[in-house]
Design a protein around this nucleic acid. Structure first.
Lengths: 335, 335
DNA sequence: CTGAAAGCGCTTACAG
DNA sequence: CTGAAAGCGCTTACAG
């Protein structure tokens, strides 16, 4: 079907070695030879066979990216950035979504059926624990995103979730709010980010000498709009009405905002609202949403950078890369 | 590094042929042989080398999915559905984004550097024209999404954009609105969907005997929130103020909604608004957005189905698959 | 039911 | 600077 290197060699009257050299842009080819071969290459529309090349070199140029859900704006935006950076480095990204299913995350980490074809993995685990990560027989580079897992084996790119949550809460306190609720805590042992954000929130409350009413810390099994809506409704129906809510993700905040609108609660006059992630949507809600902005492009760039470094033989212990964040004050907190 | 078939064969005292049969679950293997080999397979954690297998079989199990932008909610949701269906069929999806760059779309269609590794392509072109499609030397299955290109070579999965736009406009008319604007037309020769939606809108206006003010049809180079915002502002600042706006995409509508809110224009009382795509976000805006809901899951399923059929040898001329849509009336049109 | 062997298309030491 | 040849790990006709 497709034209092979050998056929091109025959057509140009040189050896496959020389054609290979031309295709791969190696130096030691006589200019006139190169030109002649290139002419044939173009004429027949030669395309190297990726499988053969991989078999020979042991590399596929494929990087697996595993995120909880592609259609969650934060991951969609992050995926976009990672695909862009990886492409620039000559890698092709294969995207997988786990829906936070620990089984699927473990499978992908263990290089299941398709995992075998990746040169490396960028993984944003939701449910994986330290034991899973340490136990993985994986020899190829794995870069972890998002959670602080304390794995010493893998590189890890993250923001300081405690500090970010603390900053978000302090922002609410600085507005004079005193009854501050949170939406997004998780009971499951796997919810690392949730725990860190709750911790940051509690720290800020304690520092300001404010009480942390247990009833005002609402859980969120998933960080989506529906859960945010439901939990905000629960808060509005509760015994203690908050005057500010810190949502652990923007999607939760979008749902919460909708609940407030339905109930005629004014944001920020009655209740101030802040989210987390700075997805584009937050700039267009009414009121626009204050949020925490992790530098997504820096996360993507670092993840790809670490991956490439590992592929090039860097075998130092797992590196922690901390990416900066920024508080973005918008209308939902009175900006 | 990794264990090979040959090594497993030696360890189990059988030929590679037999090990291969066991790995691939073929019939003619004696039960006790199978068991013995399987034990070794498990013990050493054997993983088939995907490159070798591909080289041998000529297939990679990889399907390329090309969308304009991963972080646009419509494409994020569609991608999610396609990845799910393709995975179910045993394929791995490689996602690429073109940002509507015709050059990139052409490259990917022409099976550029990385395109060579795909068994097939699912392509949502923004800028590609018929000539590009017909000229492509591509021999592998290509399924087109979204645009009516009239290509006779490739299968095409789409909704009836004219009918959908007509339905959206009729909906606005049925509310008693008489000065109806549109946001989303495109001048470029490539904007097929835009043209069809404008056509559907004009048809509905003509059928109702309503005028189509040129100043009320606003262009949108990109279908994102920012453009929707800007064009809605332009409408509000214009000589003729509309009492209803049909946005050719939900993102445009979200931006338009924000513009109305900033200007104190009440939706739907002053201006009714309808979008297109039914992305999740539209259910959570205030007011929630009426829209056109294409059956995304059916689009994804059909696309993968056509792809698989082509891979299995179906060589009939390009097939048109029309997917149903539905009008969803929400608060932005008074529901 | 199982084995020995060819060959998929490439890269790359080894010669020259 | 170029050629002849080995071999990456697998699948699969061909024998037996």
């Amino acid at each position: 079907m497709a034209v092979t290197l050998r056929q091109v060699a025959q057509m140009s009257g040189v050896s496959v070695r020389t054609v290979s050299n031309v295709v791969n842009g190696f130096h030691h080819v006589a200019p006139e030879t190169r030109e002649r071969v290139q002419l044939v290459l173009d004429a027949v529309g030669y395309r190297p066979n990726a499988a053969a090349r991989s078999l020979r070199t042991g590399r596929t140029g494929l990087v697996g990216l595993v995120v909880p859900a592609l259609d969650q704006p934060y991951f969609a935006e992050l995926t976009r950035a990672i695909v862009a950076h990886a492409t620039e480095q000559g890698f092709t990204v294969v995207v997988d979504q786990t829906d936070g299913d620990p089984e699927r995350e473990r499978d992908l980490l263990a290089a299941g059926p398709r995992g075998a074809m990746f040169d490396g993995l960028i993984l944003n685990p939701l449910a994986l624990n330290l034991a899973d990560l340490e136990a993985s027989p994986e020899r190829r580079p794995v870069v972890l995103l998002g959670e602080r897992t304390l794995s010493t084996r893998h590189d890890h790119v993250h923001i300081d979730n405690v500090a970010a949550a603390r900053a978000a809460t302090q922002h609410l306190i600085s507005l004079g709010r005193r009854t501050i609720a949170g939406i997004g805590s998780q009971d499951s042992p796997s919810g690392q980010s949730a725990r860190l954000r709750a911790e940051g929130m509690m720290t800020a409350l304690a520092e300001a000498g404010l009480p942390a009413h247990p009833a005002l810390l609402r859980t969120a099994p998933r960080y989506d709009r529906t859960v945010g809506y439901q939990q905000m409704m629960a808060l509005l129906d509760g015994a203690i009405t908050p005057d500010a809510v810190f949502c652990f993700s923007d999607m939760l905040a979008v749902g919460a905002l909708r609940a407030c609108a339905e109930r005629g609660v004014r944001v920020p006059q009655d209740i101030a609202l802040i989210g987390f992630d700075d997805v584009e949507e937050t700039r267009f809600t009414t009121p626009s949403l204050s949020t925490i902005r992790p530098d997504k492009d820096a996360i993507a760039r670092s993840a790809v950078e670490r991956m490439v470094a590992r592929m090039q033989g860097d075998d130092s212990p797992g590196i922690e890369v901390e990416i900066p964040f920024e508080l973005v004050a918008r209308e939902s907190t009175g900006a």
